[in-house]
Deep mutational scan, measured.
Amino acid sequence: MSRVPSPPPPAEMSSGPVAESWCYTQIKVVKFSYMWTINNFSFCREEMGEVIKSSTFSSGANDKLKWCLRVNPKGLDEESKDYLSLYLLLVSCPKSEVRAKFKFSILNAKGEETKAMESQRAYRFVQGKDWGFKKFIRRDFLLDEANGLLPDDKLTLFCEVSVVQDSVNISGQNTMNMVKVPECRLADELGGLWENSRFTDCCLCVAGQEFQAHKAILAARSPVFSAMFEHEMEESKKNRVEINDVEPEVFKEMMCFIYTGKAPNLDKMADDLLAAADKYALERLKVMCEDALCSNLSVENAAEILILADLHSADQLKTQAVDFINYHASDVLETSGWKSMVVSHPHLVAEAYRSLASAQCPFLGPPRKRLKQS
């Protein structure tokens, strides 16, 4: 649940008159999402009104509101027999009622949201009550392989729920002597030191190019640089560091992050930047690179990204790559990247197969709970 924001200063709310007192009302909304995959969808019983329910879910471990999704594969009634019906059901509720908006969509073979439908307002739910769409999607369109909505005969539904909580009022009075504290510009100011090479005390040599930097900042941000300058190493004695395995453009992006906490060109060089972040123990930059690479996972590059993640101990990226390969196994196994990995990294192939087997055979063990970014 997000923290209630402070109200904007009255002088910034309007260029008009300023009242002596004010009130700011925040209506709290808890948002969460749920993904439900139905394997072997074409084998569902086709009687009209037949119901399939998901397991229950909530916004978190401490949330007492429990929900589930309900599907009628062949419609709810005679009117909707040519459609799939989809509903959000409130299973248990400690209150007399709650209000919530919802959005349903289908994830296609690429994991993209399609055929989205959402409620136009927050509906009133009581325990045992459901709301949804009797005519969510035509069955003939859903079952047509050309539309790519049932890869490997799996129907994957994605649901986003927004639950309306209580409202909170914050009130106060205006004073004539309003003090406005300026925003912190530390990142910009440190970035200026790097860009202008002011007050530098060490030189970093990268592929024949020299960059002036500040030992204190490098040591504070990177345990690797800290070790170089702290001990009686040649880098500490000469205040000069030779860097041979990072390209200059990648190095500059890494230094921008060290000084400012930002990497504006990360998406263009996420793979190389991940390697640099791993070498210099820049954990936050490493996770930022993992996130960017996750966003660009595809059938063509899944094997290469899995190898990269394994090489640099990028655990979150590795998990996402394995899950992606499992979901698109029939396509990924035909790529040149996968065939190369079979020869060069057989242990990763074995890991992917083990994960695929456990996903398809849940009876082999208890269900695993899916539970950071600093």
Rank of each mutant, 00 (worst) to 15 (best):
V4G: 01
P8S: 08
M13Y: 04
M13Q: 02
P17S: 08
A19H: 07
C23D: 00
Y24T: 08
V29R: 10
V29C: 08
F32A: 07
F43V: 06
C44S: 07
R45W: 07
M48N: 10
M48Y: 11
M48V: 01
I52P: 03
S54R: 01
K66T: 02
W67I: 00
L76S: 15
D77M: 03
E79S: 02
Y83H: 12
Y87W: 01
R99Y: 14
A109L: 11
K110F: 13
E113L: 08
G132K: 00
K135P: 15
K135I: 13
F136L: 10
F141S: 09
L142W: 12
A146C: 07
D153Y: 08
L157N: 00
C159Y: 06
V163L: 14
V163T: 04
Q165V: 01
I170K: 02
V179R: 07
K180H: 06
P182S: 02
E183K: 04
A187D: 06
L190M: 07
L190G: 10
R198F: 15
A207V: 10
F211R: 14
Q212H: 14
A216D: 03
A220F: 15
V224N: 11
A227N: 08
E230F: 06
E234F: 13
E235K: 02
V241I: 04
E249H: 05
F251E: 01
M254L: 04
M255W: 08
I258Q: 10
A263V: 06
P264T: 02
M269I: 06
L274Y: 06
A275Y: 12
M288H: 06
D291R: 03
N301R: 04
A302P: 00
A303H: 07
I307S: 08
L308Y: 01
A309G: 05
D310Q: 03
D315V: 04
Q316R: 06
L317N: 00
Q320I: 12
A321W: 01
V322P: 00
D323H: 05
I325C: 06
Y327N: 10
V332E: 00
T335Q: 15
T335F: 00
T335E: 13
G337P: 04
W338P: 00
K339W: 13
V349F: 14
R354S: 10
R354P: 03
S355L: 05
L356P: 01
L356M: 06
L356S: 02
A357W: 06
A357Y: 11
A357D: 03
S358N: 03
Q360I: 15
C361G: 10
L364F: 14
G365A: 14
G365H: 13
P366Q: 14
P366F: 11
P367M: 14
P367C: 15
L371G: 13
K372Q: 05
Q373D: 13
S374A: 12
